[in-house]
Design a protein around this nucleic acid. Structure first.
Length: 317
DNA sequence: AACGCGGGCAACCGCTCGTAA
DNA sequence: ATTACGAGCGGTTGCCCGCGT
């Protein structure tokens, strides 16, 4: 259905662009006195030459008294990554778990900081899975060529080692993804349907970020209610109903999300990744080893020789 | 000092959703 | 069932500022 833009007919008259302190003051004064009421009629009553939508955004993203300014804490960052892995780009929903932060602010933070961070880790920021797209493979071949060239030209130069490390990271993700089915079968047999540790799916590429089933919820949490529209909307992701956990403050939910979905610290993540590496190695040593795995093993061995654990730490940091 | 470039952020645009008539 | 409208959401744009050359 939709509707025409709210201010289209008055575009020539209504002001756009950055807000002046005077306009801010008028809007604040009006809302403090009368409440915002109807946004469409608000600008007229408040003496502002803006469209109602512009006023609403200004209020919601900047003037609201409960807005928290300043840098995002590590805690907030981790929470955002968690929530994004579950909710996707539902910035407003994510914002409900971060008091004082606006959806716009979180969205900007994601696009400017976290997204790059995940990309640097070789993870697709949309799916939170290791990247395996063609461009990624192209990067891999380029990196391998660069690494070989670098080694030939100057084997001890740090940039050459860095390129090799990047190639190893890409290859590692690829291997993990290729091994996904194998691992899933094995872990399913060992631990049933439960994930053995929180970030496993993210690390090995089996993460069900947009899968049919939501992340497992501890028994102590139970939903107060779930409307039919929620059910329709959620389609397997956690929705606003999370806000209605009985007897738990939002911080409790945050704690749960953090403890359930991510390691407590990058160091833990490093450990997890190493564990995955061990698992994979064990898997490869098993009877299911594919003929191609020797190539991967050779690569991994090469990288083991070239880099130590600090490599993973660097990537994660 | 001047310039170009890239990052960060506020604001806008166009669409969907929910609801009332 | 359809339509119109307000509200809200997510994606995109454009400006500002800091940094490197």
């Amino acid at each position: 259905m939709g509707r025409s833009p709210c201010c289209s007919s008055d575009d020539a008259i209504l002001k756009k662009g950055p807000w002046t302190p005077e306009e801010d003051e008028k809007l604040l004064e009006y809302i403090n006195t009368h409440g915002h009421g109807n946004w469409k009629t608000l600008p007229k009553h408040a003496g502002l030459n803006r469209c109602g939508k512009s006023c609403r955004l200004r209020w919601a993203n900047y003037l609201r008294p409960d807005i928290k300014r300043g840098r995002f804490s590590e805690e907030e960052e981790r929470l955002i990554i968690n929530l994004h892995s579950t909710l996707g780009n539902k910035w407003s929903k994510i914002a409900t778990y971060l008091p004082g932060r606006t959806d716009n602010e979180i969205k900007n933070f994601w696009n400017t900081h976290i997204r790059k961070k995940l990309l640097n880790m070789g993870l697709d920021p949309n799916t939170h899975k290791p990247r395996t797209d063609l461009n990624h493979l192209l990067n891999l071949t380029q990196l391998i060529c660069a690494a070989q060239l670098g080694s030939l030209m100057n084997p001890w130069e740090s940039s050459a080692l860095k390129v090799q490390a990047d190639a190893a990271q890409l290859l590692q993700n690829l291997i993990q993804t290729l091994n996904t089915n194998q691992l899933s079968t094995i872990t399913a047999g060992l631990v049933g349907s439960q994930t053995s540790y929180p970030y496993e799916g993210l690390i090995n590429g089996t993460s069900s970020l947009y899968a049919d089933e939501p992340a497992p919820v501890p028994q102590k949490f139970h939903l107060m209610s779930q409307t039919s529209s929620d059910q329709h909307q959620s389609q397997g992701v956690i929705d606003n109903s999370w806000a209605s956990f009985e007897g738990y403050e939002s911080s409790d939910i945050s704690d749960f999300l953090i403890s359930e979905l991510v390691p407590e610290s990058p160091e833990t993540a490093t450990t997890s990744m190493n564990q995955m590496g061990d698992d994979k190695t064990n898997t490869n040593h098993g009877s299911t080893m594919s003929p191609d795995s020797s190539i991967f093993q050779a690569w991994e061995k090469l990288m083991d020789d070239e880099t130590d654990n600090s490599f993973w730490k660097d990537i994660l940091e």
